[in-house]
Structure formats: structure tokens, C-alpha cells
């Protein structure tokens, strides 16, 4: 029997909830504390917990390293692309009002903040996971006696 049985059962219960909380923080950031950065870190922490309990190879199957390379760049491109889109619509860089100029309750601002926070979320999650994968993959399998 694995000595980590209790850890695995509890982690299996908690990791979906951690991911759910990350998305709550992401999409509720306009109304409460939180935003893309915090949500990205929380989601990455959930995946790192999975890697610590079930092994880094299992985590790499769940979140392949190729996704991380793509996601990291996609986030920055989404942020920059929002700015370029506001250029194209005739405003300044990152001037979100251009998305809905006639809106009376600043819908353009809401769309802009949503896109930008999503970009931050992607980049932060993937960068944190990239750093963890890079460090974690270099460590040889430690037997517990080595501590």
C-alpha cells in the first residue's frame, strides 16, 4: 500500500475545488479582491499539488509541456492584442472605451478588463508551471530516506 494514500484521497477531493476557486477569483475580480495574477497562481498551485502527490509525470500527462509554451505566449499576445485592437478601432493603446463607445455603463471597459485579465491569467499559470516543471524534472526521484 502506498504510504501516500491519505494524501492522494484528500488531494483528489481538493484539487477540483482549488481550480474552481481559481476561476471564481478570475471572473469575480471586478467585484471582490483578486484578478488574473492571483487566479493564475492559485490554478498553478493546484496543478503543482497534483504533481507533488501523484508524481510529475502524471501532471505532465494532465497539463502537457507543449500547452505551457503556447499558453505563456498566448497570454502576452492576448494582452498586447487587446491594445492593438483598440488602435485599430481608432483609440489609444489599451483605451478600452473603443470597444463600445456608445455604452452608458462602460461596457467597453468591462470587455477590455476581461480580455486583459484573461491574458494575465494564462501567462501567470503557464509561467509558474514552466518554472516548476523545469526544476521538478531535474530532481532525481528522491527516496524518503534521503531526507
Amino acid at each position: 500500500m502506498s504510504p501516500h494514500l491519505v494524501l492522494r484521497v484528500v488531494a483528489k477531493m481538493l484539487i477540483p475545488l482549488i481550480a474552481l476557486f481559481a476561476f471564481y477569483v478570475q471572473f469575480h475580480g471586478d467585484f471582490g479582491p483578486g484578478g488574473g495574477f492571483q487566479a493564475g497562481v492559485i490554478l498553478a498551485a493546484g496543478i503543482i499539488l497534483y504533481a507533488l502527490v501523484f508524481g510529475i509525470d502524471a501532471a505532465k500527462k494532465a497539463v502537457p509541456p507543449s500547452w505551457i509554451r503556447i499558453g505563456m505566449s498566448f497570454g502576452v499576445l492576448l494582452y498586447g492584442g487587446t491594445g492593438v485592437a483598440t488602435w485599430m478601432l481608432g483609440g489609444n493603446f489599451l483605451d478600452y472605451t473603443q470597444f463600445a463607445p456608445e455604452s452608458t455603463h462602460a461596457a467597453g471597459q468591462h470587455w477590455g478588463i476581461f480580455a486583459v485579465e484573461l491574458g494575465v491569467f494564462c501567462t501567470v499559470t503557464c509561467a509558474m508551471l514552466a518554472i516548476f516543471y523545469a526544476f521538478g524534472s531535474r530532481t532525481p526521484e528522491l527516496s524518503d530516506e534521503d531526507w
Partner: peptide
Amino acid sequence: PTASHAVANAAHQAG
């Protein structure tokens, strides 16, 4: 309790 278990278990595994 899980954290307590993990710490105690790690200490036991480490001898």
C-alpha cells in the same frame, strides 16, 4: 489532519 498525517508519515518514512 491531512497535513499532520503527512508530516508524521514523512518523519516515520525517514526513520
